[in-house]
Amino acid sequence: MFASISLALGAIFNLMGSGHYIHWGFVQISVANLLVIVLMVVTFFAAILIPFRHKSGGKS
């Protein structure tokens, strides 16, 4: 039973192929890492730019 559950939960996208890399001058970075870093920067700016709504409503 556990096996069938985990099969159902198994990886949908197979990332086990050979890695994709970006070369830019002396910079060499995997697409996966670049994606993580870009997402971090995007998340950071989203966090400080998206308005934060107080549940209690009131503006101070």
């Binding site: 556990f2 096996a3 559950i5 985990s6 939960l9 198994g10 993580v36 997402l39 971090m40 998340t43």
Partner: peptide, 24 residues
């Protein structure tokens, strides 16, 4: 074990998120 592999995936991705959030 496939269950083991899935638990390992949970462990890997929680680590990636841990560092992701910690750096932000």
């Amino acid at each position: 074990s496939t269950v083991g592999l899935f638990v390992n995936s949970l462990h890997l991705w929680s680590v990636e998120l841990f560092f992701f959030f910690m750096v932000i």
